[in-house]
Design a protein around this nucleic acid. Structure first.
Lengths: 243, 243
DNA sequence: TGGCAGAATTGGTAGGACCACCGGCGAACC
DNA sequence: GGTTCGCCGGTGGTCCTACCAATTCTGCCA
C-alpha cells in the first residue's frame, strides 16, 4: 500500500503517460480559447517547465499534434497554432488511404460514391462561370495528354474544383483524402484497361454539362456514374494484382 | 549505409526532418508489406540504430504514428503494428470535431446529413433481426431516461448500430467521428430546447420502423429528417452561445 | 539611412541515465 | 507433482545535457 506518489484520484484516468496528458492539456487550451489560431506557443523549454515535464516529452506531444495538423513548428521561429480549419486537420485522412488495402480500398471508394454525387449536386446550384472556365481548362489539358502523372493531376484537379464549389471545407478535405490513393494508383498503373481514358473523358464532359446547366440532379447522376466506373476499375485492378 | 547524411538530390523534398523521414520509412514498410498488422517492431533502440538516427527522433516518429492509429506501443512489451483497420486509423477524426467550432461544426453535420441517410438506406437492406432487437432495446433504454450522459449514450449507440449494419467500416469510422462532438455538446447542454427529446424519440421510432420493414427509401428519408433536426438544433445552440 | 554580419533565440538531433512495466524462468511452497 | 510467487532481463517512458541548424533580432558600419 505504500504508493510512493499516488496520482490524485480526481481525474480517474491517471493511468496515462505524461505526453498524452500534455497533448490533452494543449487541446483543452485550444477548446477553451486560451490558444487561438495563429498564436505562438511558449518555447518548448519554457512550455515544458510550465506544464511540469521534460522537454523530450513535450516535444513528443508537440510532434503528435503537429502531424494531426493542430500545431505547426517552424525551425528557429517557434511553435504556432494552425488555422484549425478542416484542410489542416483532415490531411491525416490521406494517411489512411495511403496504407489501406484490400477491402478497405473498396470501402473508401464506396464512401466517395456517397459523397461525390451529393457534392456535385450542391456544386451545380452554386457554381459560377469562373470555376466552369477552370473546369473546361482542366478537361482540355487532360485530353491533350502528357505523362501519366500530369493526366492524373488534371483529373484530380477537376474533381477538387467541383467539390470545392460545393462550399463545404470538411467535405473537400474528406474527399481529397479518399481520392488521393485511387489517383496515385492510376499514376502507377496507367489507364491500362481498354478504353478507360475515353470513357473517363466522356463522363467528365457529362458532369461538366450538368454543372453548366445548373442542373443538380443531372450532376448527381453524372457523378454517381463516374464514381461507379472508378469503383469497377478498382475491382479489376484488385483482380490483376493480389495486393 | 554508404550515405550517412547529405540527402540525395533525387527526392527533391530533401527539406525534411529525420523524424518525418523515419515516419515515411515506416509507412513505406507497411505499404510494401514488410510490416503486417499485429507484427512487432524491433526495439526502439535497435530500430533507431537500423535507420541511422537517435532514439529520441525514433520515439517522436513512433509517437506520431501511434496517435495516427498505425502503431501501438505497449510499455515493457514492445511496439506493434495495429490491425490497420478503419476504426483504428480514423479515430483521429474525432480530434477534428473536438477542437472545431463555428461554421466548421455546421459543415460536420452537413457531411453527416449526406452520409447518414445513405448508410441507413443500406442498412435497411442488410439488417438482421438480432440488430433490430438491439435497436429496440436502445430506444427503450433511452426512453426510460437517466442521466443526460446515459441518454446521449443510448442515442449514440442507436445510430452506431445502424451505421455498422451498413457494413462499411470506413463509413462507420467517419460517422463516429462526425457525431461524437454533437453528442458531447448534448451532454453538456442537455435537451434544453422544448420538446427536443420527444421529437428525437419519434424520429428514432420512424427510422426503426423503416428498418424493420426493410424499406431503404423510407429509411433514407427518416434518417435525413433526423439529421436535419439535429442540424437545426445545432443552429439554435450556436445562437444561444456565441462560441 | 540602409544593408549586412554577428549574436541571441528557438526548434531539431543525439546520446545517456534511470524508472516503470511486462513476461518468463525457476525456486519455494502446498 | 502441481501451483504460486518472486526475481530478473528486456523494453517502453521520462528526464537531462549537449550541440546543431534555422530564424530573428541587434547594432555596427558604409
Amino acid at each position: 500500500m505504500k504508493r510512493p506518489l499516488r496520482e490524485e484520484p480526481e481525474s480517474s484516468g491517471a493511468r496515462t503517460t505524461v505526453t498524452e496528458r500534455a497533448m490533452q492539456r494543449i487541446k483543452d487550451m485550444i477548446s477553451d480559447g486560451l490558444l487561438v489560431p495563429g498564436q505562438r506557443l511558449p518555447t518548448e523549454r519554457e512550455f515544458a517547465a510550465d506544464l511540469g515535464l521534460s522537454r523530450s516529452s513535450m516535444r513528443e506531444a508537440i510532434r503528435a499534434l503537429t502531424v494531426l495538423g493542430v500545431l505547426e513548428a517552424r525551425h528557429g521561429a517557434g511553435v504556432y497554432v494552425t488555422s484549425l480549419e478542416p484542410r489542416d486537420l483532415l490531411d491525416t485522412f490521406g494517411v489512411v488511404a495511403e496504407i489501406s488495402r484490400g477491402d478497405t480500398l473498396l470501402h473508401l471508394v464506396q464512401v466517395r460514391k456517397i459523397l461525390e454525387p451529393a457534392a456535385t449536386a450542391t456544386a451545380a446550384a452554386r457554381i459560377d462561370d469562373e470555376i466552369l472556365t477552370l473546369l473546361r481548362a482542366e478537361m482540355t489539358a487532360m485530353e491533350q495528354g502528357g505523362s501519366a502523372e500530369e493526366i492524373v493531376g488534371h483529373d484530380l484537379e477537376f474533381h477538387r474544383l467541383i467539390v470545392e464549389a460545393a462550399g463545404n471545407p470538411v467535405l473537400s478535405a474528406i474527399l481529397d483524402g479518399l481520392s488521393s490513393r485511387t489517383f496515385r494508383a492510376r499514376v502507377w498503373r496507367g489507364y491500362r484497361v481498354e478504353g478507360v481514358f475515353e470513357r473517363t473523358f466522356q463522363e467528365h464532359d457529362r458532369i461538366y454539362r450538368a454543372l453548366a446547366e445548373r442542373d443538380p440532379e443531372s450532376a448527381r447522376t453524372a457523378a454517381a456514374i463516374h464514381v461507379t466506373a472508378v469503383e469497377d476499375w478498382l475491382r479489376t485492378q484488385a483482380e490483376i494484382d493480389e495486393v
